[in-house]
Design a protein around this nucleic acid. Sequence first.
DNA 1: TTGACATGTTATGTTTTTATAACATGATGG
DNA 2: CCATCATGTTATAAAAACATAACATGTCAA
Lengths: 107, 107
Amino acid sequence: MSSGDESDRVFKALSAAIRRDILDALKDRPQTTGELCARFPALDRCTVMQHLRVLEGADLVIVKREGRERWNHLNPLPIKHIYDRWIGAYAGRAVEVLDRLKTDLEG
Amino acid sequence: MSSGDESDRVFKALSAAIRRDILDALKDRPQTTGELCARFPALDRCTVMQHLRVLEGADLVIVKREGRERWNHLNPLPIKHIYDRWIGAYAGRAVEVLDRLKTDLEG
DNA sequence: TTGACATGTTATGTTTTTATAACATGATGG
DNA sequence: CCATCATGTTATAAAAACATAACATGTCAA
């Protein structure tokens, strides 16, 4: 079965668009919770924090506190892990399918 | 923002362990709905079909009917797409992080 | 120290997802 | 034709995810 407890949390965390957007926002540099909330004005501050907690639970976001600020850092390793253990094989298979298709069209 | 309607459906589809297990079961060869239900005895037949519908909606499973049988085929392309457009960058970044870590440890 | 600020917690209503039951269709083989 | 089998549909109950409000804590700076 494909579901370790760890990668299951990662898949779940990635399943919400807003959380993927948060990760994208953290790609360039770490940001405080406040900065992130400002970046997503459509959502309530509590909602953003709830999503951050999910990302933290999946180890996709690592938190460092400085005084009264909370710095959220992106951790891309869990994504690499699910890629290595799961997605890579499918992507490779997709390439095979495309190659076969290409060959068929040329033949 | 990271969320096209298409890849959002794919991420959502991949977020449930049972659906990833179904995709794994379809990796080797297409299977009928009945075969899949037999493979997951813990779940009700209706539940399996509901999950198949989600996978079909994400274009991860392609259905071909033959008489009274329904053959479910894996389509790995959507996974390749989200890899190309999204996951690859994170996996690459993870490698960077690891490299930097390795260099730091050696230095 | 004290008021403003950044963040955190608990509780709660709403929507989605998941699982199942009950019933329906439609091909197949005798 | 007719019973059976594989699949499909609709409805619904239960669980999980999502969004927000109301309240709480701890820090900084004047």
